[in-house]
Design a protein around this nucleic acid. Structure first.
Lengths: 252, 252
DNA sequence: TCGGTTTTGGAAGATATTGATTGAATCTGG
DNA sequence: CCAGATTCAATCAATATCTTCCAAAACCGA
C-alpha cells in the first residue's frame, strides 16, 4: 500500500473512531510502526489530526484564530502550552500589549499572578483581568468585531498610537517567509499599531499557521523578535525563522 | 487505552455523574489507581474538574468573571423591570450610550433584538452584545476599574468627547434635589462626558438611591430628561423630580 | 537499464508513561 | 479527640513510545 492510500485510510478511520492506536494501525495497514509514525506526523503537520503518545486523535476543525471558545478544555492543549511559555517571558513591572485571538487569550490566562500592566483590544482578555488587583488593564476603544470580541477601527488604532509597551504579544492567521498575514484588513491595521508601540514583538502561533497565507498582509518578519510555537511545527519552518535572526521557542 | 482517551472518557463520565470514584474509574478504564490519580490531577490543573478525596467532581461553569455585576441579586427584580421599561424607550436605528453599573446592565439585557448602535464603557454590557449581529457596539478606551468592569480615565473621557448619541442611559449612586452623585471621581468624570454627548439623558435608579448622597457630584437635575424607577420609590421624591420638568416612569 | 531520489523498516539510545510501593496526610466512625 | 482505614504524594523500576539514524527497498525519469 502506498503512502497516499494510507493517508486516506487513516483519515477514514478517524471519522469512525476518535482515537487511533499506532500498533493497531500498523497491523491493519500492513506497514511498520516507523512508517505509520511518519504518516501520523505528516498528517498532524497538516492539521488533519492530533498526535498523541502511541497514536492519534481526531481534531476539531475550527482551529481558526477567528473562532472563539473560551471554555474549551478538550482541544486546547498546544495553545495552552504556548500560553504558558509566552507568559514565562513576561516579568513583573512590564507593560504588555495583548492582541485579540484565541492563542493570545491563552497567554492571558497564564499571566494572572504577575504584577504587570496589560493593554489590549480583546474583550475576552480584558474579562480575564477584570477582577485582578495585580494586573492593571487598559483597553483601547473601538467597535466590537463580533465573534472574536476584538475592538477595531480608528478609535482602536488611535489608542495604540498614543501608548508604549515593553512587549507586544501577537498572533496571526498565517506565516510564511514573506511575513505574517491575517484575515481582515481592520484587524491588520490595529496589529500594525500594536507592533509599532512595543519595544519587542512576540508572536504566538500554533503549527497550523505555518506556510499559510491569509488575506491581508500584516507585517514582514523583520518586525518580529520572538516566535513561540508548539512542537508539531515543521523544522524547516523553524529554521527559516531562525535564519531571519528570530528567536524561536518551542513550547513543550 | 492511551492517556488522551482516558481524559476524554473521564470528562464524558463527569457529564453523567457529578462525582467519580477513583477505584471505579481505575476498573472501568483498565488502568491503575496511580495512573488515574495522575489523570485527575492533570485535568484538575486544567480546570476541567475538581479533585476530591478518593475521586473527582464536576466543576460548575462560571460564565463570567464580572459576577459583581452579572450575578448581582440586590433588587434584581426591580432592576429587571426598570431595564425592560427603559429598553422600551429605545427604537431601531438609535445610537445609545450605556453607562456602567448593575442597573444599566439590566437595560442592556433587554436591548438584544433591536437594531441599534450601542456606545459603552462597561465590560459586562459589551460582553452582552459581543456576539450580536443586530447591535453594533462601540467601546471607549480606558483602564479597567476592577469588580464593576468599567473603563475610566482620560482615554475614556476623550472617546466620549468625540462621539454623539441619541440617548444616554445612565445610573447613579444617589439622587437628591441637588442632583445626582456617584462614588468615584473618575466614574463621574466619564459620566459627565457621556451626558454631554447625548441629546437625551435617561437615568435608571432603583428606589434605594433616592435621598442618598454619594461622594462625588455628577450632574444637576437639569441635565436629566427622564428618570426610570421602581414602584417602591417615595411619592414625594417623584413629585420633586416632576416639578423639575423631568419625565418620571415607574416600572411595574 | 542506470543513477539518483524517495520511501520504508529496523535498531539504538533517549523520553515518556505506567504500575507498584512507601511513609505521610487525611478522613471517618466512634 | 483518637485509632483504624483510606487516600495521597513521591519515588522507582519496568514498559512503551519516540527520535534519530542508517541501510535496504522501491520508485522514477532519462
Amino acid at each position: 500500500m502506498k503512502a497516499p492510500e494510507r493517508f486516506r485510510r487513516i483519515q477514514d478511520l478517524l471519522g469512525q473512531h476518535e482515537f487511533l492506536d499506532l500498533a493497531t494501525l500498523a497491523r491493519d495497514l500492513k506497514a511498520s510502526e516507523s512508517t505509520i509514525r511518519r504518516d501520523l506526523d505528516q498528517l498532524a503537520a497538516k492539521g488533519a489530526l492530533k498526535r498523541t503518545h502511541g497514536g492519534a486523535m481526531a481534531v476539531e476543525h475550527k482551529t481558526d484564530e477567528l473562532n472563539f471558545v473560551v471554555r474549551d478544555t478538550r482541544q486546547a492543549d498546544e495553545k495552552d502550552l504556548i500560553g504558558r511559555a509566552t507568559a514565562a517571558l513576561v516579568e513583573n513591572g512590564m507593560s504588555v500589549i495583548i492582541d485579540g485571538g484565541t492563542t493570545t487569550y491563552h497567554v492571558a490566562k497564564h499571566l494572572g499572578g504577575k504584577r504587570i500592566q496589560v493593554i489590549t483590544n480583546s474583550l475576552p482578555v480584558a474579562n480575564q483581568f477584570s477582577n485582578s488587583s495585580m494586573v492593571e488593564t487598559i483597553m483601547c476603544g473601538g467597535f466590537i468585531f463580533p465573534r472574536i470580541g476584538v475592538l477595531l477601527g480608528p478609535l482602536a488604532e488611535e489608542s495604540f498610537s498614543k501608548l508604549h509597551a515593553d512587549v507586544a504579544i501577537m498572533s496571526a492567521g498565517g506565516i510564511t517567509s514573506e511575513g505574517i498575514t491575517n484575515s481582515n484588513n481592520l484587524i491588520v491595521a490595529v496589529q500594525q499599531k500594536m507592533m509599532a508601540a512595543a519595544s519587542r514583538v512576540i508572536l504566538c502561533l500554533d503549527h497550523t499557521k505555518f506556510g499559510r497565507h491569509a488575506l491581508s498582509f500584516a507585517a514582514p518578519l523583520e518586525k518580529i523578535h520572538t516566535v513561540i510555537t508548539d512542537k508539531a511545527t515543521p523544522r524547516d519552518q523553524i529554521a527559516m525563522l531562525q535564519k531571519q535572526r528570530i528567536e524561536v521557542i518551542v513550547a513543550r
